[in-house]
Design a protein around this nucleic acid. Structure first.
Lengths: 254, 254
DNA sequence: TGGTCTAGCCTGTATATACAACTTGACTGG
DNA sequence: CCAGTCAAGTTGTATATACAGGCTAGACCA
């Protein structure tokens, strides 16, 4: 990094910084190419390249004739494929419902505090709910949320809006980390998911960040006989024949 | 598609076509910007945009002063994160070894023929091997390969080069599809993987394409207590603090 | 009031030009 | 023969300019 970064990259960085800091919020208007030309003393082609690449990378969305706008993270398909169990179920043409088992405020302890990078005793919300696909339990969601990110979490009706969708609204998703495991779930979980004793569980453990800090930590149990994660990976530009035997689904989200 | 595609996109398409058809092979030189200017009657900036985007998308690699070259798929990190159990194990600092249980030529039947989109009776290779991480079995690989894609498959020493790595060499990976499931493996698989009777298996079922046709179909069983899939998703440009509790691994490959 | 039209802004693309930095191979002088 | 130099080709960036096409608010007219 001895040489200074190219001009267009500096432009991109400065706009990304404004978005990350919260100065520019989703759906906010980003300075137009001509405004950047004046403000930043660059040619329009340079401003165009910066904004075009930010568009390609999913940070902003551009509309000819209207302008450039900070992406609403709900639809940032390039950056992070947003995943929501309710959307996924509806995409399959089935109906989603959920049952809230717990929705409480707690102090972070042990594993949870460590995962969320907060001090022991910090306020977190604990959510426990079962998601159903056509009356059949498909996911047990055990989630902790840093309270300061989602003050209204305790009053939210999570049968109407899933925690994932709610969180996406209050805390722009920037980064996600997940692990997928197979295990034998304990008796309580098996009962909630109506699993046989000899049925394995597919467990997704997911942590997401917003503004550089962990926001939520979730353990998602699924019945192994009724749930699978599927992904389809194709080079950009390759238009897929949407064949019936391909389910496109990126299991990423909060 | 009423309006003609923009010129730079036509350029990209024509180069992608040359790559997909095999006219241009990995490491081959792609016409330089100035050559494209003459051949295609465009300005250099247009040729530059086409090649630059192909570079961003992972189709080609550009080296200032040397030229533009078709990507070696082994390192196409943008397009498809190439995954190889041996590399993964070595990245963890452990040693990989494998045991070949079967390496035979067969006629495709039933599920296999269907998955590989070939007629019943078409020649396929069947591979069955166990991968070890430090003497501990970590993956049972049960794979079928369309014979016409990999004629030398039967003579290959798969303890030296994993099937995944070998296939990546002979059939440029273009597209991948995978499903992840949790299940209780049968007794034979449990024995090979030294799993307890009450241990779940993480099963990855993967199909990959080259030149528009399915090449290989694999079922990969892993012991649930010793293996997990982990992924980390961050917006491009966000430089990660490589913290110890984050394992970066995209489980994609052939 | 209500519909239409247009001016002005925006993005999208294309071109010509310029200079910098890197790589390679050939040439040249010792 | 070797080492240094240089020229040619390549990518990378930056600018000025031009035109096409989408969108919108406000002017204008019926």
């Amino acid at each position: 990094m001895r040489n200074p970064k190219p001009r267009y990259q500096q432009l991109k960085d400065s706009i990304i910084a404004r978005i990350s800091s919260g100065e520019l919020l989703p759906t906010d208007r980003v300075p137009s190419e001509n405004e950047l030309v004046e403000e930043m003393q660059v040619s329009r082609m340079t401003a165009n390249r910066a904004l075009r690449e930010l568009n390609d990378e999913g940070y902003v969305e551009r509309v000819a004739g209207r302008g450039t706008f900070v992406s609403d993270y709900r639809s940032r398909s390039h950056l992070l494929e947003v995943h929501n169990i309710a959307d996924e179920i509806e995409r399959r043409g089935n109906t989603h419902s959920s049952l809230v088992l717990r929705q409480s405020k707690q102090k972070a302890r042990g594993e949870v505090a460590k995962a969320l990078h907060v001090e022991q005793g910090t306020a977190v919300f604990h959510l426990l709910l079962v998601h159903y696909e056509n009356e059949s339990p498909i996911q047990l969601e055990d989630r902790h949320v840093v309270a300061s990110f989602a003050p209204g979490c305790i009053d939210q009706d999570f049968t109407a809006v899933t925690p994932s969708a709610y969180l996406t609204g209050v805390a722009p998703l920037q980064e996600a980390e997940q692990a997928v495991r197979a295990s034998i779930a304990n008796k309580g979980i098996r009962a909630r998911l109506e699993m046989n004793d000899d049925e394995a569980a597919l467990v997704v453990i997911r942590r997401t960040w917003s503004r550089g800090r962990p926001v939520t930590f979730a353990r998602l149990h699924h019945p192994g006989s009724r749930y699978e994660l599927t992904g389809h990976y194709a080079p950009p530009g390759t238009l897929k024949s949407t064949s019936a035997d391909v389910v496109q689904l990126e299991n990423i989200g909060q």
